[in-house]
Simulated scan of single mutants.
Amino acid sequence: MTEDGLKAIFFEIRPMLLRMLVARLGNREDAEDTLQDMWLRIDQLAAGPIGQPAGFLYRVAANLATDRRIAVARRGARDTAWLDVQPVAEEIPDAERALIARERLQAVEQAIADMPDRMRTALRMFRFEEQPQRKIAEDLGISVSGVEKLLQRAYRQIHDACEIFAVDDCERRRLSHEGDPKSGQ
């Protein structure tokens, strides 16, 4: 069977191939695309003699339909996985949230800078260097309960420094729910 003969048989059985592909793929557009792919590949398919060209073309169409279904499933899984890891709108900070976060960070940094040296050292070793409290106690020459007390006071100072933001956030939320004060609502 020559390439021209395979193309002639393709045109002869094209309506039946189209029906088969619509049944396998579920829609006419994908079936038409698959037939187009098949037509473009006929040049490469006729490398040697083909004993039953119609059966051969049905098998090629079936294989292309399977490949297309697999590709669609993979694309769907990939797109779903991509969407699953994308942040939702509430997770993306707006300008106000970013400004508040920067202000909170500055407050925490200032609170740490204002701590006595031993307290700041204990906090740094415990939280940032992940040292056990026993090692911190040995390095500072105090008891483990002394380290615990230093850490508690450090946390309290940080909490107190950030507490102003919690009040401001509550006030902002309350005002935004009450409506615009200028409109009299």
Rank of each mutant, 00 (worst) to 15 (best):
T66V: 15
R174F: 12
M16V: 07
H159D: 15
Q106I: 07
R172E: 11
R102W: 11
G146Q: 03
L105D: 14
P53A: 01
T80Q: 14
S143Q: 09
Q52E: 12
V22T: 11
G26Y: 09
R156A: 15
M1I: 00
D84H: 04
L123E: 03
C170E: 14
E96F: 10
L57D: 00
R104D: 11
F10L: 13
G51L: 07
Q86H: 02
A23C: 01
Q52G: 01
E148R: 12
A71W: 04
E148W: 07
D67M: 03
R134W: 07
L99W: 05
M38W: 02
F126N: 07
A161P: 02
A95T: 15
Q52Y: 05
E171Y: 05
G26W: 09
I164Y: 03
D37A: 07
P181K: 02
E148P: 00
R173Q: 14
E138H: 10
L151K: 04
P181W: 03
L150D: 09
Q152L: 15
D30L: 09
L105C: 05
G26M: 07
M119K: 05
Q185C: 09
P49C: 00
M38Q: 05
Q52D: 13
A31S: 06
P116Q: 14
S183T: 13
R134P: 00
P15A: 09
D79C: 02
M115P: 01
L18Y: 08
E12R: 05
D4L: 08
L57F: 00
F11I: 04
V22Y: 04
P15T: 06
A62T: 11
E109W: 06
R41M: 10
A166K: 05
R120N: 08
A71C: 03
I142S: 04
D94C: 05
G51W: 02
I9A: 06
L17Y: 03
D33C: 00
A98I: 08
L64G: 01
W82R: 15
Q131Y: 06
R28W: 10
A113Y: 08
A61W: 01
G179H: 07
G141Q: 09
E109G: 08
R19N: 11
V144E: 15
D94M: 06
S143G: 15
T66Y: 13
E171V: 05
A65G: 08
D114Q: 11
P116A: 14
V167C: 04
W39S: 11
D168S: 04
G51S: 10
D4H: 09
E91K: 01
L25R: 01
V72E: 15
K182T: 11
K149P: 02
R156E: 15
E129Y: 03
Q36T: 09
D84P: 00
T34Q: 04
A81F: 12
L6K: 03
R174D: 12
A73N: 07
H177V: 08
F10Y: 15
A61R: 00
L175M: 14
D117I: 08
F165Q: 06
M119Y: 06
K149H: 14
